[in-house]
Computed example of a mutant assay.
Amino acid sequence: MRIFADKLENTLQRQLHPVYLIFGSEALLVQESQVHIEQHAKSQGFSETFRFAITAQTDWNEIFNACNSMSLFAERKILQLDLPESGVNQSISKELLNLQQVLNPDVILIVIGSKLTKAQENSKWFKALNTNGLWISCLTPDAQRLPQFVLQRCHKLGLKPDPEAVQMLAQWHEGNLLALSQSLEKLCLLYPDGVLTLIRIESALSRHNHFTAFNWIDAMLEGKAKRSQRILRELHGEGIEAVILLRTLQKELNTLMSYKQELAHKSLQQVFDQYRVWNNKRPLYTAALNRHTPRSLYSMVCTLAEAEHTAKTDYDTSVWPILTQLTLNLSMPQNA
C-alpha cells in the first residue's frame, strides 16, 4: 500500500507494519518518516536498532543474523537499510528477496531510497516487500499542493496563518522544505500567539527559494509563463550557469520534437507508453504539445543553438535575455 509522507503519523496510530519502504527525493520528508516509524516502533517494544548502508561491500550475513536471532529473550529489532543512490542492482535485488523470506514478527524492516523509477516499482524485490508493507512516498509537493502542505505544517505547530501568509510562505520556500521547517520553528519562537500575517513574515524571514532547472522546465511545459520567468530570475540570482539551462532546455525540446514526429501515426497514449513517460509528467507534455507545432519547436531549437554558441565563444555577451525569450516562447502558445 502506498501513502504520502503527510499521512504516515495517522497510519502509525492504526497499525504497525512489518515493512516500511521510504522512497523519495525530499530529504526532510524521508528523515521525518524514518524518525516517526522508529519512535512508534520503540513505543511498541522494538528497542534495538540496526542500520546498514548498502554498498557492493556489504556483508549480508550480518543483516540476516540480525533477523534470525529470534528467541524468548531476544530484543525486538528495527532493521534499517539505506539503499545506494545508484539504485538496486541484481546482486542487491537477490539479497532483498532472500531477506523478505526470513523476516519474522520480532523485526521491523525500514528500507530507504531515492525516488523510484517505474522499473523499480515493478521489480520483484519491491513487490515482495510491498506486499506486507507500507510504501511512503516522500516527493516534494508541487506548486499546487505546497500551500496545503504549508498550512498543515503550521497547524501542527500551533501557528495560525492567514491565506496571504500561507501563499507567501509557499512561494518563498518552494523547492526548499528544510528552510520552510526552520522558518516555521523561528516564527513559533517570535510569535507565541501563533498569528501569522504578511507583515509579520516579511519582518521575520528572508527568502529561501531554491529552484532547480527541472522546476523551470516543468513550469514552461505546463504553460505558466509568469512562474517560469520568476524561476529563471531566481536561478540567475543563485548563480547557476546559463549553459546548464541551455542544455537542459535542449533535451526537452528534442524530446517534444520526437513526440511530435511519433504523433503523426500514433496516439498520444501510445507515444507516452513507448517512451515510458512518468504519469505526473504526461499532463505537462500534453499541454506543451497542444500549444506547439513542429515548426515552432524547431525555431526554438535553432535559437537555442545560437545561444549556446554565443555562451561558449563570446564571453562579453549575456545569453540570459535569450533564455528569457525562450522561456516565454515555450510557455506560451505559438501565436501569442
Rank of each mutant, 00 (worst) to 15 (best):
S228D: 08
I110S: 12
S93R: 00
R51T: 12
H210C: 12
A307D: 06
I92V: 07
E121T: 06
Q250F: 14
F4E: 14
R2G: 12
C302S: 13
L198E: 12
V30P: 00
S123G: 00
S114L: 02
R200P: 01
M220P: 04
H292N: 10
N89V: 00
A242I: 09
L103Q: 03
N280M: 04
P283F: 05
I199M: 14
D273F: 02
H40C: 06
A74L: 01
A264R: 13
G113S: 00
N254M: 15
H173P: 11
Q120E: 10
N329H: 01
G24M: 04
K124H: 03
L323S: 06
L284Q: 10
F126L: 13
L134M: 04
L256A: 04
E95D: 01
P163N: 06
A179N: 05
I22D: 05
T11H: 12
T293R: 10
G113T: 06
F23D: 03
N68D: 14
T255H: 01
T310W: 11
N329W: 04
F4T: 08
S267V: 01
E32P: 07
D162A: 09
C302N: 15
M70Y: 04
Y298V: 14
Y298I: 14
I201T: 12
T11P: 09
L253G: 04
D59T: 06
L129I: 03
A287F: 13
V195A: 14
V277H: 11
S71V: 08
H208E: 15
L97H: 04
E38Y: 03
K156G: 02
I240L: 15
E26Q: 10
Y20R: 03
A53R: 15
L253Q: 09
H210Y: 01
Y259S: 05
T310L: 14
K251W: 11
A307V: 07
L323G: 08
G87M: 08
